[in-house]
Amino acid sequence: MIPSLAARHSWFEATARARLAGLLDAGSFTEILPPADSQPSPHLALLDLPGAFDDGVVVCHGQLEKKPIFAIAQEGQFMGGAVGEIHGAKIVGMLRRAAQEKPAAVLFLIDSGGVRLHEANAGLIAISEIMRAVLDARAAGVPVIALVGGSCGAFGGMGIVAKLCSAIIISEEGRLALSGPEVIETVAGVEEFDSKDRALVWRVTGGKHRYLMGDCAMLVEDDIAAFRRGATEFLASWTEPAPSVAHLRAGQQALEHRLAAYASYRDGLQVWAALGVAEPESVPLLDRDSLVALKEGLPT
């Protein structure tokens, strides 16, 4: 069944609160530290910059198909979703609470360029704390699922955090990387990475590329309902593995093989051809379902 375009609600364009409203079971959203109980960042005030009472992240309890879940949603429209002291501490608190209370999952709606430079040291340390808290929640048996499809993507330290989660569900519009193309262009030159070449940026950091390479578990449409179905489907068949050497050894081998095979490539087109895609130049044009079918037909 093809949902009508009228019924679709773009994840990319939605605010963090609108994403949560459509992601969770209707009426199940209960915010922790709502704006009335919170304070804007004093560090931004010191720089005469406007703050937000939620400091750009919403943390909440809710339900997904009647199962209790926790959710964390970054607001890309405030300071690029970047992590400052309060923002980071809200996320850490929610992840630690998850490790104690063991909900069915934590849904982590990442939409962030990484560290908030105006609070640089606090942001970097907070991301380190988030990294450990994600791994602690997972070690307690709670899956942490990253949902990436917002305008800021998942970059910098938040790109690392995304890859520490149990899985990433991404849309074609989603981007996932470490350094932003603008940073690479500034430091290494436009020949290295032309950040204005939108198609190239997507072939290197975009959702389709990350899904084809296996860095993201699922590719979904840019639709809040599609993220909800994706998260539900993923959790139905997922059991969080205990941390183990065997698990990380397998990951190590896969990463080493990949590096040996693809280290010289500079464009998604080259990687897709090497993965066995017959017409790599067609990939950017494929719709979501066709791309998923293509990926499932690739040699393993």
């Binding site: 690392i160 990387a177 193309p181 990463l255 280290a263």
Partner: peptide
């Protein structure tokens, strides 16, 4: 800071 490093998901290797 390089395109080929990002192409192979550098954040993934750092997370590993």
């Amino acid at each position: 800071l390089s395109r080929s490093q990002e192409l192979l998901c550098l954040n993934g290797s750092l997370a590993h």
